[in-house]
């Protein structure tokens, strides 16, 4: 059994072996592996007696259930209007220049993926950024590099 299969078993043990378990199982896999591979979706479908297309349909509906390979830390910069007006472009540029990747790409060391997100609900403290599950409000191009470096240090 691969690590992923073991994880899926563990998650099904916890959430049950029925269709209702699909979302929490997929979320559980993404929490650890950052994305859902073809093999993962097949394994989940098999365990829950669903069709693979069904699992893919659910996964592709949710932006946070990625089906493309992602780095170990996912940076999401809010791209919606309030953050745009408060300078999200400069934030994105600073990250791109620092990590040498464009939005949608992953660094060569697989430590970071840079994405944008729709409104995170922090309009009063924009621009805002999410790294994995952590929110960073009122960021500046300088501050953002510090935050990323902190994460880089924690990720070996």
């Amino acid at each position: 059994m691969t690590n992923t299969e073991a994880l899926i078993h563990e998650l099904i043990e916890k959430h049950g072996k029925n269709r209702n378990a699909l979302m929490p199982v997929l979320q559980g896999v993404v929490a650890r592996e950052k994305f859902l591979s073809e093999d993962t979706m097949i394994a989940v479908a098999r365990e829950l007696d669903l069709s693979a297309a069904d699992v893919y349909g659910t996964a592709s509906f949710y932006t946070f259930l990625d089906t493309k390979p992602r780095g170990r830390n996912i940076i999401r910069v809010c791209k919606t209007i309030s953050c745009h007006m408060q300078g999200k472009e400069a934030i994105i540029r600073a990250i791109e220049d620092h990590l040498l990747i464009k939005v949608g790409e992953t660094t060569h060391d697989n430590k970071f993926t840079l994405l944008t997100a729709n409104c995170l609900g922090w309009c009063h403290k924009g621009p805002v950024m999410l790294v994995n599950d952590e929110v960073f409000p009122s960021i500046t191009p300088e501050k953002v590099i510090e935050i990323i470096e902190e994460f880089a240090k924690k990720t070996n």
């Binding site: 669903l50 069709s51 297309a53 069904d54 893919y56 349909g57 592709s60 509906f61």
Partner: peptide, 13 residues
């Protein structure tokens, strides 16, 4: 899905 229990087709994205 309903008539054939195959679900080869699904709504995606």
């Amino acid at each position: 899905t309903e008539l054939q229990a195959v679900s080869a087709l699904a709504v995606v994205h």
